[in-house]
Design a protein around this nucleic acid. Structure first.
Lengths: 349, 349
DNA sequence: CTGAAAGCGCTAACAG
DNA sequence: CTGTTAGCGCTTTCAG
């Protein structure tokens, strides 16, 4: 039977109660519970049994106070249900738990002035051994001089102060790859629907798109900017539909790509026959919208995992400089929303 | 300038350091920091100033140890980026923070035997004043006899032990409404693509669909079951396309509805002309897929907010039984994926 | 391999 | 309105 928190009466048992029952000192209980060496198997067994019998639960506040370590990691994340941030959070939680850390989470509402700084401050007050800032946006000169290691996910390594490690999906390369793919298909140029300018994630993708175009000496059409939502992609799509020279669009995420396709479709343009549209993220529905979306898959889980490994290293063995992680693999998922441009495109009617 | 965690040298200042600098006793510092009454404005100002000057940060482990309260709430949630759970988590975080509580998060991997029980145990060990179990799945006889209040979001109130409060989106009513809407359109019956049977959320929707059909004396077609993913909806959609009598489908979430539409479309069926499809959740892209999806909006934020209010009440003023929350508003969002059945439907060709 | 003593930094009573 | 005295339940020395 799964029984959680069975407590017969009175207050919660403390380690000294366990010690008494096991016939050892309280310190020995502590040793056993912390998996320290130099405890005889016999004693260990007795202690564990006594603890189990009493339904003993370690008091982590007391432990934190005495040891100065909390065994927990704080996460600052955006308060949105966007696929990217949500996936990262899940990866972080899993990796943290595997490493023996609990998770404290604080959301920043976008638009909050100094949101990240406030969030970090609040985590520090809660007590954390390390902090993950997930997909931050540029808030100007926030000096995050914090006394615990910080992992920044999806922003330049330079962000923040010392003891900062970082990991990213290599979004720039991914964006460049997507753009090149469209160019390789034969499109003269590629239009871009970018994410909000303050997001590093948006900038990276924009940069990758630019790089690809520049490398081939192609003209850079004006950039349209959305807010990651399908609604904003739809708005951008209406503008694109009104223009006359659009044959390929690279949207900075799948939601916006879906909005773009919708607008194009409503304007009587066919995707991919008249206009190719590529997205970014490979959200779960991407394969099932009409037409199925060509997109760049982001290795969220790998990034979170790798980043956390670095963070834990920084927490537990400070001073060990380990090399930045390899760039995660580039994965272009080609589906049906992209195709070569129509030969000698007839003027629209 | 936003400066976080500036610390000049040595170790972190403690409240006694603040007291010394402000020329008061340490207890007075504690009073000021806890916003207690009976402190003169003058003293309060001096203390605050001294704290600020030293970059003082309260040690919450010490506070928790001394007070027996952690001022934090634990959340057990599924480790998926599904829109529902993710939205709930965001709502919970916001509401918790507004109420002055920090958040600890533990994910359960679906399929984990006793996942929820283990997660709760881990939260209890971390130290929390209350627990939120978000969108649980039925794990059989887990006896959650925990010594803190528990809020269960999206499961029957009976789930769990004493001191359990619950809140839900009223999914059954919503599902019934969606089904009735389809019936009102003139469809003879409505097919259902359900979520996984162990999810209470899936059962509620199934029940609502059943109720609507039963109330009108309509035949209940066999239920297809998915796993919330668009891929599983697609699989279900293929089966539905193969059948000959399908004119209306109600999917238990939008992702599956999108998959169903895709399969139908590929089979040469038009939505909504040949088959109407309704979803559930109103995910952000629902309005922009082709065709825009008719769906039931779930008031995630309101549910989280309301639930947390109950939980905080249970934590802070035990014994106060307050009435269960009102059922949240029912919101049917009609878009273009549903329509009346075609008159005298011709046999398919 | 095990134990005794001394705090970690705060809040809870109780005085004043 | 403010201060004093005890702990909260652990981990850390330092001895055995």
């Amino acid at each position: 039977m799964t029984r959680v928190g069975a407590r017969t009466g009175g207050s919660a048992p403390r380690s000294v109660d366990v010690a008494r029952l096991a016939g050892v000192s309280q310190k020995t209980v502590s040793r056993v519970l912390n998996g320290e060496r130099y405890v005889s198997d016999e004693v260990r067994r007795r202690v564990l049994e006594a603890a189990d019998q009493l339904g003993y639960r370690l008091n982590s506040a007391a432990r934190a106070l005495a040891s100065g370590r909390t065994r927990s990691i704080g996460v600052v994340t955006l308060g949105t249900a966007l696929y990217g941030p949500a996936s990262l959070l899940i990866g972080i939680e899993r990796a943290a738990r595997d490493a023996g850390y609990a998770l404290r989470v604080v959301n920043t509402l976008e638009g909050d002035a100094g949101g990240a700084a406030g969030a970090v401050e609040s985590l520090l007050e809660q007590g954390v051994d390390g902090i993950v800032v997930s997909e931050p946006i540029d808030e100007g000169a926030v000096s995050l001089s914090v006394d615990v290691p910080v992992l920044v996910l999806g922003a330049p390594a330079a962000f923040g102060g010392t003891r900062t490690v970082s990991a990213g999906v290599g979004a720039e390369l991914l964006a460049r790859t997507a753009t090149e793919y469209l160019l390789d298909l034969g499109h003269t140029t590629v239009h871009h629907v970018a994410g909000p300018g303050r997001w590093f994630a948006a900038r990276d993708r924009l940069e990758g798109w630019r790089t690809a175009l520049t490398a081939r000496g192609r003209e850079q059409p004006p950039v349209l900017t959305g807010d990651w939502s399908a609604a904003s992609g739809y708005a951008a799509g209406r503008e694109l539909a009104a223009a006359d020279d659009v044959t390929a669009v690279f949207a900075a995420n799948d939601d916006m790509a879906i909005g773009v396709i919708r607008a194009l479709t409503e304007a009587g343009l066919r995707v991919p026959d008249d206009v190719s549209v590529a997205g970014f993220d490979d959200i779960p529905v991407a394969a099932y919208v009409t037409p199925p979306l060509t997109t760049m898959r982001q290795p969220f889980d790998a990034v979170a995992r790798e980043g956390l490994r670095l963070l834990v290293r920084a927490i537990e063995t400070p001073g060990t400089d380990l090399p930045p992680p390899d760039d995660p693999p580039v994965e272009l998922v080609v589906r049906a929303s992209t195709a070569p441009p129509r030969p000698r495109a007839p003027s629209r009617g």
